[in-house]
């Protein structure tokens, strides 16, 4: 146990975590969840359905955006320091994973604390569906690591540091907005054909959409919409669905992280 605790990954993760909880941006991040979730539930008290949808969109908007931007800035700013760490007898994998874990944990913690404190105000929702509230928190944590992975991967690929911020905003815009416009267009264009499976696959291709669909199925919104027998419910709505959705989210986390690590291991610092 002591050995694991002293392993370079853990050492770097702990250092990174400590470094990040001192960062004021992480405080702002947590506070924004506290404030917005408080406001959303306060406004939406009459309609818990609407309120939970707004809360969901808050998470889907803020978590990827902040994880991308903060992750990329933190990682690219740390590259000169990584140069010093690489000169120590530890592997690059340890440095990369340590950074990833430490930073991700910091982000997740500040997200959970912000939302958790917000939930004290929004006991209404917590009462109505504690399960779906927990799922929302879980999905927020998944999305944090997913978009952190993506940001790390892009940073390892990028030649010009100045463009990274722009890339992140573009990526966020793509996943949060453009992708849905695309799905919308596809459905309107090919609406005469059976589209359930293609749309299902499209959902798996965007972690934000996937998270949204998973949560909506959980709060029975989609079942109400008349798709309890349909494919979404079948593949994503039940326990198996949680596994499929969870598997896809895990893949979304690990694939970019692995690609990023691979590039990082060969990268000249």
């Amino acid at each position: 146990m002591k050995k694991i605790f002293n392993s370079p990954v853990v050492t770097i993760a702990l250092f990174e975590f400590r470094e990040n909880i001192r960062n004021k941006w992480l405080l702002i991040y947590g506070l924004s969840f506290l404030i917005f979730s408080g406001i959303l539930t306060y406004i939406g008290t009459g309609d818990p359905l609407q309120a939970s949808a707004s809360l969901l969109n808050l998470v889907l908007l803020l978590v990827p955006l902040f994880s991308l931007v903060f992750g990329s800035i933190s990682f690219s700013e740390a590259l000169p320091f990584h140069e010093i760490l690489v000169a120590l007898p530890i592997s690059r994998r340890d440095i990369f994973l340590g950074k990833w874990i430490g930073l991700g944990t910091g982000l997740v913690l500040s997200f959970l604390l912000g939302m958790g404190a917000g939930s004290l105000i929004q006991f209404n929702i917590a009462q109505q569906g504690f399960g779906s509230y927990l799922l929302l928190l879980c999905l927020g944590c998944c999305l944090t690591f997913i978009f952190l992975s993506i940001s790390f991967y892009v940073v390892t690929l990028a030649r010009k540091k100045e463009l990274i911020f722009g890339w992140m905003l573009l990526l966020w815009f793509f996943f949060f907005v453009l992708f849905d416009v695309l799905v919308f267009g596809v459905v309107l264009l090919f609406g005469d054909y059976p589209l359930e499976i293609p749309v299902l696959i499209l959902m798996l291709l965007n972690p934000i959409d996937l998270a949204r669909v998973m949560l909506l199925l959980k709060i029975d919104l989609a079942a109400m919409m008349g798709y309890s027998g349909a494919l979404f419910q079948k593949y994503l709505g039940n326990t198996l669905g949680l596994f499929i959705g969870g598997g896809a989210l895990a893949l979304w986390t690990l694939l970019p992280a692995w690609l990023g690590l691979r590039t990082f291991q060969k990268k000249d610092l």
């Binding site: 250092f15 400590r18 470094e19 960062n23 000169p80 320091f81 010093i84 120590l88 007898p89 530890i90």
Partner: peptide, 21 residues
């Protein structure tokens, strides 16, 4: 060298000792 801004000197030295074991 560019050291992380929130890191204290003492902590960095300890970090190095830990990583070099």
């Amino acid at each position: 060298p560019k050291f992380p801004p929130h890191l204290k000197v003492r902590e960095l030295v300890t970090l190095f000792e830990k990583l070099r074991q």
